[in-house]
């Protein structure tokens, strides 16, 4: 590489990294600490770091409530299907954008971005009406289809960028050997796109896992609801169950955290797509 690695630069970088880490990590740490406190202590002054009444009770209460566990189950199930379908649909679409020139390509490209621009709140009533007409109200299907709309634009954009970096020769080789386009896509482009797929998958999972407004509006019974709605149900008319809310968010983000740790190698590589020049 360029220049010698000097030890003091290394120390400086580590210090900078540690200082920088305070920004993202401190609020999270504060949340985790508070989730172990009894409710009134959360607002104590001066603030307490580790509660004298340290307790796992908020966590235990969640585990003992079948209703709350159901929220987690629903969130996993919905997020799983959203990731799966987003990947399939966006691969097909990205293939079209990446390998073909066709009339309307530019318009479709712009539309995919601009349709995200309508504030969801204004869409709420017509959208709910549509979901009811399609007999999807209070179903997993409604949420899965809705989240596809949120995740597809980014997924298609990223997958297109990624496929653009893969040379055409790859798929042509298959086709020259007598394979079909779909074969080329499935056996050549998809396996080489794994990093891109993982990065899009992670993004998609987080979007689906964290969505609130439609999760609430498109469902009515608690057995169809997801973690963010479950958290809001703890915000009562008069008082909040702070510690349980915080415990639920900590628990909700743990699987995401584990997924991220597990996939992060691919994740970083996958995002490279947009930057590679052709």
């Amino acid at each position: 590489m360029y220049g010698k690695k000097k030890w003091y630069i290394k120390i400086l970088i580590i210090i900078a990294l540690l200082l920088g880490a305070l920004f993202p990590a401190f609020p999270i740490l504060w949340m985790v600490l508070n989730s172990f406190k009894p409710n009134p202590e959360i607002f104590a002054w001066p603030p307490t770091w580790i509660s004298k009444a340290f307790s796992f009770e908020p966590y235990i209460e969640i585990f003992q409530s079948p209703e709350k566990l159901r929220f987690f189950f629903n969130s996993y199930l919905i997020s799983f299907f959203v990731v799966l379908l987003t990947l399939i649909i966006s691969i097909l679409a990205a293939y079209a954008f990446s390998r073909f020139e066709f009339p309307g390509k530019g318009i479709l490209n712009a539309m995919i971005i601009s349709v995200q621009a309508v504030p969801p709140i204004t869409l709420l009533i017509p959208y709910l009406g549509l979901v009811v007409t399609l007999h999807l109200y209070n179903t997993y299907g409604a949420l899965i289809l809705t989240y596809l709309l949120f995740t597809l634009p980014y997924a298609i954009l990223m997958m297109t960028a990624y496929m653009n970096t893969l040379p055409q020769e790859l798929d042509e080789a298959v086709m020259i050997d007598g394979g079909s386009r779909l074969k080329a896509l499935w056996y050549v482009l998809v396996p080489t796109s794994v990093p891109g797929l993982v990065s899009v998958g992670m993004y998609t999972f987080m979007r689906a896992w964290n969505e609130y407004l439609f999760a609430l509006t498109l469902t009515k019974t608690n057995d169809m609801r997801t973690v963010p709605v479950g958290i809001s149900l703890l915000m009562g008319q008069h008082a909040y169950e702070w510690n349980q809310m915080l415990a639920m968010s900590v628990m909700g983000s743990l699987p995401v955290l584990i997924l991220f740790l597990f996939f992060q190698k691919y994740f970083i590589a996958g995002m490279t797509a947009g930057s590679v020049k052709h």
Binding site: Y212, S249, G252
Partner: peptide
């Protein structure tokens, strides 16, 4: 910060 829902 990416891992938390907006209400949280």
């Amino acid at each position: 910060p990416w891992m938390f829902t907006a209400s949280v």
